[in-house]
Design a protein around this nucleic acid. Structure first.
Lengths: 331, 331
DNA sequence: TGCGCCAGGTTTACCGGTAACGTAAGACTT
DNA sequence: AAGTCTTACGTTACCGGTAAACCTGGCGCA
């Protein structure tokens, strides 16, 4: 890691400012100078030092911090992928972290990352500690909140409404004639988004005169096991349900497995609906009734909104990426 | 983002060097001075500037770069999670990227990230371009190669042998009486690890006198769909198979779905084996025969090996994290 | 009395870029 | 012919830490 701008400047017989301008593709040099500098930089194997650049100018950071609830979630994997592709195409680097659905862990993470003076942040969710909000206000870069649309975003937001997802599914199940609905959730008190879907689901059912009959919200991670055992518990408490809405598709598939193991016919005896749109859901013997979330598109839109703001291009403060209810065959 | 060391120094009536020492928990100051500095730093809401620190001292970077093949892989999500937890506990920050199974994309990514002078790198896989190797040799930090054990690692390596995974599964299936095995893969020519498993599988079968009968390696992503249609294609070409080994569990589950849709009984008519150990595999009506990969443990071990090296503690160059064959009920 | 030593600091130089400003030579204008 | 503009650079100062060298007063001790 030897050569720096000075070395190149010396070898090319120009000042390091000229080298800097050439390498950043600016103006103010002749074609001849450019070629000479480029050739020498190439030959010397010059590796730029973004640390110095970002430190010296505080406009030059190409670092974006992103915090997700969990790195092991299939959905967030796709969001990350969308963000990563868009950002790397635009020349930015991504620093990530997980907050385990905790606003306090999010603040701790932001406190670490903000020390690197990133150009901006992408955060999942709308719940933040007061400390987080202070930190982000002082850090002068754009902040994109994704996943749930916030009524009053810190800065920018990209996503959809979880309440609406729940409400839409309730309406759909009512239209299919379901009258005694249950709910199986996970991450009790930690996952605000799941709670929002339940709220939309529940209030829509209530308004239609067929209120939620029973619900079981586990403290576990929302995976296949939790869906399996969650449905078992729910049905043991309240066997007379005609449909169950799950926290997500993984849990719904777990629920399907439980139903199958007990000879419960789906959808004849019991309807099952998920949320999220994981790939596996579409390859089941009967396609899962669920809400498909355009995860990659959300990631891409978030990254692009952030970069547009950085470049002063200015777009909408709120970008809605609509979800789609997939009727499937289990609801 | 106002206060810096100088401001604190001024307010505390000491030099900024003393403030620096206090904040980093060094020595050379009285308890009284420490308390005064700490109080003032707290009150001023001091946010350290790691950019300046890393830039000025080149020992101080707490940045680790990690490159995975795909961010949408369930397995790598868990590896990332293991790395992230370990690193954040140890006070490091994680910069990630995906290379889409391409050594060229990996090099391009490293070229971007190395400009931030990270303390070290975690890379997935053993195949790198010559340019990558040069870059990493010049960057003086540790490099951990994970996922597959390399015969000659650049520096450190953590993982297991994919060839052995394939060989072990072949032996297991032979013991169960399988004699006409097929293989369904994905990511043709891109995923070296899958190819290694196939190699181990194939050569073990051959040595036992029951060579691989047919294989179908798709160019697609290794998901449920690919498994479904891959098995369809394979059986249309060669119906007389008694077991099929899949690239991973997702594909195997897709294959199970295909078998079920055609009334093929598993495992009576056809055995199915996967690889990876995704959670869904254990909740199927019949538990999937597969190889369980301790993903989180690999991530954790990689992070810890890297930090140990950074602190000059020196551990083993190669850490084996053994996989476990799960017999299941489909093989 | 003089010396060394230590705790508890301070001073100075530097890391490698970039912004802002300066300037000389030639082209173009009026 | 004088003034103005443009091109193609060069100079200087600075970002906020850290390493390393340097100071200084008080104390123990021969």
């Amino acid at each position: 890691m030897k050569a720096n701008l000075e070395d190149i400047a010396l070898a090319a017989g120009v000042s390091k400012m000229t080298v800097s301008r050439v390498l950043r593709g600016g103006t103010g040099f002749s074609a001849e100078t450019r070629d000479r500098v480029m050739t020498i930089a190439q030959r010397m194997g010059y590796v730029p030092n973004r640390l110095a650049a970002a430190f010296g100018s505080d406009q030059a950071s190409t670092l974006v911090g992103m915090c997700v609830p969990r790195l092991t979630s299939g959905l967030f994997g796709h969001v990350l992928d969308g963000v990563d592709r868009a950002l790397s195409r635009l020349g930015y680097q991504l620093m990530i972290g997980a907050n385990n659905h905790s606003a306090e862990e999010e603040e701790a993470w932001i406190r670490q990352v903000i020390a690197w003076r990133p150009a901006g942040f992408i955060l999942s969710g709308r719940i933040h500690t007061p400390g987080t909000v202070d930190l982000l206000r002082e850090a002068t870069g754009p902040v994109v909140e994704i996943w749930d649309l916030t009524t009053s975003p810190i800065d920018l937001s990209v996503g959809f409404s979880h309440v609406d997802c729940g409400a839409e599914m309730a309406q759909f199940l009512l239209r299919r004639g379901r009258r005694r609905a249950g709910y199986v959730g996970a991450l009790a008190r930690a996952d605000v988004m799941g709670a929002a879907r339940l709220e939309g689901f529940q209030s829509t059912l209530a308004r239609a005169g067929h209120p939620l009959v029973a619900s079981e919200v586990l403290h576990d991670m929302p995976g296949f096991y939790a869906g399996y055992y969650g449905l078992e518990t729910l049905l043991s408490r309240q066997p007379r349900l005609d449909v169950v809405y799950f926290h997500n598709d993984e849990m719904a598939i777990g629920g399907l497995a439980y139903a199958q193991s007990r000879g419960i016919r789906v959808p004849e005896d019991l309807g099952i609906a998920g949320w999220g749109g994981m790939e596996a859901a579409s390859i089941l013997p009967r396609r899962l009734t669920t809400t498909i979330v355009p995860t990659t598109a959300i990631g891409k839109a978030a990254a692009e909104a952030l970069v547009a703001r950085l470049k002063g291009e200015g777009g909408p403060e709120v970008t809605v990426i609509p979800t789609r209810l997939e009727p499937g065959e289990t609801g």
